[in-house]
Nucleic acid binder design. Sequence first.
RNA 1: GUCCCCAUCGUCUAGCGGUCUAGGACUCCGCCCUUUCAAGGCGGCAACACGGGUUCGAGUCCCGUUGGGGACGCCA
Length: 564
Amino acid sequence: MAKISATRFAPSPTGHLHVGGARTALFNRALARKLGDSFLVRIEDTDQARSSETATLGILEDLSWLGINWDIGPVHGKSGGDPNNIGPFYQSQRLSIYKGIVEQLLETDLAYPAFETPDQLDKMRKDARQKKVNFRYRRDKSFSRTNAIARMQREPHVIRFKMPDGPIKVTDQVLGEIVFGDEHVEDFIILKRDGFPTYHLAVVVDDAFMGIRHVLRGQEHLNNTPRQVALQKALHYATPLYYHVPLIFNQDGSKMSKRDKDKVVRSFYRETINRSEILKDLPKLLQKEVTLWEKDKNRQLSPKSLSSLADGLEVNLPEIDVEDFRKAGYLPETVCNFLSLLGFSPGKQDNTDENLERFDQKYFCENFETAKLGHSNAKFDRKKLLAFSAEDINNLTPDSFLKHWEEWAKRYEPWVFDSFGLAKCTLIASALQSRCKTLADLTSQKGPGAFIYLDDRGVVFDDKAVAKFLMKGEPSGLKILSEVRSVIANMITFNPEDVELRVQEFANEHQIGLGKVAQPLRVAVTGIAASPPLGVTLNLLGKTSVLIRIDSCLSQHLKGFSQN
RNA sequence: GUCCCCAUCGUCUAGCGGUCUAGGACUCCGCCCUUUCAAGGCGGCAACACGGGUUCGAGUCCCGUUGGGGACGCCA
């Protein structure tokens, strides 16, 4: 047994890391730091059909991006390693260990082979359900060990653990003492037909071999705990301390899960009337996949296919995975801070009422306490996350903000820096920083910088803005615009201060308020009534573009104006 | 259906028997600042699920009801 003391995060690589998993990782690391334990990552890939190396890599990358580094485990970037020689950290590479344990259990009559096929079991479960009784697999009274061992040699089989009789007590560090009656805990499978261990066996064996003394995980595992405790007793392993934390929910109160994206697309697809037309526009391979998927509720589309279909249906996929939030332009620190608050509260310090919610992971690790963990499930509030994000982005130094944006853009919108160059992007960043809630807002078509990316002759004018700032009043905005145009045209320097100064002078000369000049100009070059300060807005576009846009605006609206 | 967990503003939560006419954060609303939009500053609305106990005293302890959630896989 390992001589170290560790906490662990043990994801199964069946897709991207989702926020619930990320939170578990965050809590485990904090617990480890608080305890002075090592923090270990282990890949639970005992499901041959669903696990993939791509998913593993994705999860490790997601953790790294969040800044969650691990001491022991798969090597990725600066994380991982095996200083105590307790690896490997992929369960698929530990098969011989589990087999040895299973043999030991078999020899000591603590486990036995079983021969029912999955179909047979399915039927047994259905029958039980129909009779409204609880199904629980227990070894037959007429069970003969010698017979079974002999049959093992020639028949496909699983190995089941002999669950001891009597209730099992679990002591949880968060929830307290919980007693599970044995009427539910069956002789569960520890070795599958394919020779792979089940989760229960692998987790118990690995935790023991890897020195895991503290197990913090989601409450969905609470009902698994008695099985694992029974197994630990049978194997004479120490039972780790358990910490079961509440779940993370969607706004509608359902559990936030990996399947949510599929669910959203499915329900939207069902309600779409012209779905056959949409289907036609998809690639042939995808068409086949969708047809199969449509018929089978339990089937899930691959992430790629799912997003293609979502595009076709024009549905927005919910953000569930860490990668989704990265793409949406959140800073990793923001995501970590927000996630840390789901099921954990920093409490009150010195009885002051100040807001203690905004903290970094250093603070979280130092102040993490079991007593500060909540007991009830938490809904994931995107609006609050967005508010945190806006605040964090605003608090960044201009330099750091630019770097974050550049890094993000390189991954998701490479055209920005490619076509505008660093100098212009620096200007854009400084103009938009306080107006952005996420990094994605910087390039969003609905974002505060949308006007920057417009074609000079393709400005789309907002009707209300045009009516209010160009058509109304005497003199009208259009008239002022046509007069101020020459002021702009005659400018030699074009920095924000000069622009503001000249426009102010113009207003003074004509004895009108600044707004009377600024708003028509703003509408002319952006199409809408809101933008960064006028000087910055015009400077960002450059004199040439500004003049083209003014002219284009005048020619589009003067016509309509004279007719009225 | 069976077992398990949970229950304070719309949401995240503070509260560990009296200091609670219940505090903070997000949302929403108002005001200030202001050439627009942001940012920033100030203020406001808003909750102890219900019913029984225990106690001099209950958001805080106990029981029940109701409600929410989880588990019941050769998934993890």
